[in-house]
Simulated assay, not measured.
Amino acid sequence: MTLSTSAEGAPTDRRAGSVGTGRAHAKAVLIGEHAVVYGAPALAVPVPQLTVTATARVTDGPDGVSFTMTGSPSRPMVTQATDGLRRLIAEFMATTGADDSPHLEVTVDGAVPHGRGLGSSAACARAVVHALADLYDHEVTENETFDLVQTAENMAHGRSSGVDARTVGASGPLLFHKGEARELTIGCYGLLVIADSGVVGRTKDAVELLREGFARHAGAQERFVNRAARLTEEARHALAHGRPEELGARLTDYHDLLRAAGLSTNGIDALVEAALTAGGLGAKITGGGLGGCVLALTRTERAGDVIQELYAAGAVQTWVVPLRGPDEYAR
């Protein structure tokens, strides 16, 4: 890969044919969604089985950027995603001093289903940031990557908590609180089964629904946030101290909180009930709500029963994520 630099050493040019590659993975919110944007804590886990790879290539052609996104997302999702990625690329060029005059072909190849609360847009954005960094031989820090991903996320979702932007590059479970993220202590092990309802979630609608509910009922926001914070803190302690039954119970309690706020659906509730009936320790909606996925905590020996019941209740696909610490995710 040939690189020209300015007098200050910033990358300024790329020869046609130069290619950069970047990768990221999915995420799932264990507990704390929605409340996290109001200052409550949230716990999230990486889903390394679902990956995104982006390539950025300099080609001969008119100045600008062209995108190819694999899979079959709906046209509005593609438009929304590429608008955010164009803004991200412009920010990358501006902050790094890279030459934005060549024609860039950006290809995003991802296994993360869109609109399911699994961080598809953030994973795509992170992969593109690292593809550009590779293309221009530019080292990006984790904080720089986060800021660039947030540029795209805020276009896609409005005000973004940052949970997705951090977790799609994390090596293990994370605690988020008031904009800060740190690794979680893991003392209880089990399996997280993620079940896709087949229905695209509607994060923006869910956020607005929750906000409208808060506006209609005095004290509703404070009650919701306080309850969410207590459940998340109890879940964190159970996770750290090896109490899987308590962790599962807090997950189910959190689902009840979101359902009471109108953020679940009949289909999601049926999946939660199926997981519990099959012996799951706890289950809840994960992500923005009004569709998307259910996350269930189960012991290893009951995972097969839980998965079978989830399919019987309408799940269209499932993924199994071992609950473990960052060192073990890296193996």
Rank of each mutant, 00 (worst) to 15 (best):
S74P: 00
R223N: 09
E142N: 06
L310F: 10
G242R: 12
Y189K: 07
H130P: 03
L104Y: 12
R126V: 14
L30T: 02
L88D: 04
R227M: 10
G267F: 05
R250Q: 13
A181R: 05
A40M: 08
E183M: 08
V163Y: 00
E246F: 04
E273K: 12
R202Q: 13
S121E: 10
G169M: 10
E91T: 07
T252F: 09
T5A: 13
A261D: 08
R243M: 10
E153H: 01
V200D: 11
E245G: 03
A274M: 06
L271F: 09
A261Y: 04
F92L: 07
G280Q: 04
D305N: 12
F146K: 01
V78L: 14
V128N: 03
R250W: 02
D196C: 03
P48L: 13
V207R: 04
G325C: 11
L210K: 05
P102I: 05
A111W: 00
D327E: 15
H138W: 07
P62Y: 07
G158F: 04
L209Q: 08
I186Y: 06
P326E: 10
G201L: 13
H114Y: 11
L271I: 11
D305R: 14
L231Q: 13
A35N: 02
A313G: 06
P11D: 02
V200H: 09
A330Y: 00
L263D: 10
L263H: 08
A218W: 03
S66F: 03
L281G: 00
D256A: 13
V306Q: 11
E153C: 07
F214A: 13
V45A: 10
T95C: 01
T59E: 12
D100E: 14
V207Y: 02
L174F: 02
I194L: 14
G279Q: 01
G314S: 08
V225M: 11
R259L: 02
E301C: 03
L174P: 02
R182V: 08
T70E: 01
